[in-house]
Amino acid sequence: MKKIKRILIPLLVLALSGCLAGCKNTKDNYRTLEEIKKAGTINIGVFSDKNPFGYVDENGNYRGYDVYFADRLAKDLGVKINYVSTEAANRTEYLQTGKVDVILANFTVTKERKEEVDFALPYMNVSLGVVSKNDRVVKSLEDLGADDAVIVISGTTAETYLIKNYPDIPLQKFDSYATAKEAFENGTAVAWANDNTEVIAFAMQNKGYTVGIPKLGSSDTIAPAVARGNTSLLEWMNQEIEKLGEEQFFHKNYDETLADTYGEEYKETLVVEGKKTD
């Protein structure tokens, strides 16, 4: 016992003191607009496995709706861009620890997230959706049996929504889009809940799947996020998004990156052009 105490107590003290010292600093771990310009490089967090929003193509280049926008931001800011690949659950963390200046990883604006990071103006509409196999299309979550697992990605709004509203549904959690898709194709779960944009894209890109629930929960928006309190960068981004709205930039972005997947059908429901929505 003595030995355990001798080891445990210093460890606990170390962990606690480390936090007390560290916690205060995390809020100021961002670079201002000036600092980014001076450094000449902006770090932007994007997905690397969420086709067609943020993914790496065969040649190793980042592509997608988010990336197209990120490229433009860097160009207008006059700096080079450094893409940082992120997982859904890491997004707030990456901002708070200063690993990235901006998150452009299909980040849905929610009340809880607003307390952790600052969102700029939205550039996309989104809500949740559920995709399932054709031989058993899930039209309502009430239809699920007690053992019917639903796939979600850790750290997404779909996960939060299901935990809150359907606590009895067994969730199969994955930390990346790539592994979730693979598992879903292997048939480990009856359905996959995610952003409806994502599940619609999945059903369009893979034969044998139907989006049984195209809309679940509330309608939300997707926006770029910066570290909380980074006003100089936030204000510049908002001006930039308004300016881009005037030239219908996001419609063009849709044509370039999303039209191949969604066709024209979803253009007006998906795209938001630089205006305040709240």
Partner: peptide
């Protein structure tokens, strides 16, 4: 990686949920 809620994944998941 294979969706098992072990200690590490639980912690990661909770960070993603509640920050």
């Amino acid at each position: 990686a294979i969706s098992l809620m072990d200690l590490m994944f639980t912690a990661k998941d909770l960070i993603g949920l509640y920050y």
